[in-house]
Design a protein around this nucleic acid. Sequence first.
DNA 1: TAAAAAAGAATGAACGTTCATAAATATTAT
DNA 2: ATAATATTTATGAACGTTCATTCTTTTTTA
Lengths: 192, 192
Amino acid sequence: MALLQKSIDKRSALLKATLCLVNRDGIQGASMAKVARIANVSPATIYLYFESKQDLVNQLYLDVKESFAKATFANYDSGETIKDRFEKIWYKMAHFKLNNKEEASFLSQCDNTPMIDEPTRQEGLKHLKLLFDVWNEGKQQGIIKEISPYLLYAFTVYPIAFLMNMDNRKLCTLCDTTLNDAFKVAWDSIRR
Amino acid sequence: MALLQKSIDKRSALLKATLCLVNRDGIQGASMAKVARIANVSPATIYLYFESKQDLVNQLYLDVKESFAKATFANYDSGETIKDRFEKIWYKMAHFKLNNKEEASFLSQCDNTPMIDEPTRQEGLKHLKLLFDVWNEGKQQGIIKEISPYLLYAFTVYPIAFLMNMDNRKLCTLCDTTLNDAFKVAWDSIRR
DNA sequence: TAAAAAAGAATGAACGTTCATAAATATTAT
DNA sequence: ATAATATTTATGAACGTTCATTCTTTTTTA
């Protein structure tokens, strides 16, 4: 149905506009008026698709998290070794952040804003299940340290965001060499 | 001079009010009117001490960074071993963030906002010189990996902010045991 | 009494949101 | 198949509020 498609297009145009603006001016800088203008739509139209600015940003958050997870766990094979699986996931996360800077920077901004509510954050976390699986198996096999997934995440995945930030600010170029170094650091941090 | 002291008091009352509000409602939620009300001052008075909201937030940023650095490098002794020095610095950073949650959360928010300008960020970085010294010496002695300080920071210090966030959201309690685990992870990540 | 500091009221602009209305689309009746 | 009608979808203008900032006046200090 053409109508439905048109609706979907408009919805994603609005999400895309929001992503772009948040990336440029911060969450508070992405006003509904600006979002509307960039999406070629009347401000009022936004409220046909989202019930508030908070809703808009939260839905965008879930949307981006989902595509991040999709990229991260593509070709996931539970038959591979723990290290191989972790390595592939880690590199895919890094490459997603490098190749989708707007999305990555948006997620970074979301980490510390009160705009994203707790239920939405929880929902977003679910996408990481496969990574937690790998860690749990790794612990059972004595390959990975017996520590909470929050620690594992903090020291392997979270740092990528920092590096991406530095790269954006031209302070530290994230070339392949740097990325390989970074993975080594990440792996050394959590392996037994 | 009593007058000067009163000025200093008012300035820090304004900074404190800003810190408190940013922590509660985010940077955009800390309006000049609210800051004034909490500091028991007229909105206009703020402009006697700061030339704009951006200036206010940037000065607060430097202020907090400085007290963070003061706490972090207290009793620094360049005669100690690399690991001892790093360990003490790391724990002091962690404890500062645990004991000064408002300050820590504020700094986290600053990581991803366009409100803090690049010169101010550079200024804030200078406070970390001693940490960089330790790392450089460590590299020379073959104790620490030969990688950029940005990588070292990303994998040892930056994760603390994540853990603090989880702690604030009651998802992962940062008790002494967790903290010790975390330090082990941090050290394993960068040692040779 | 002169100068500095602080106040409160007021500024235009921008905010998120809603409203009455218009355009576009779907449904029904002929 | 076409005309008339109902329904959805979208609009631009306007809402009340709040924003950062400034202006004029009053209070405090020297």
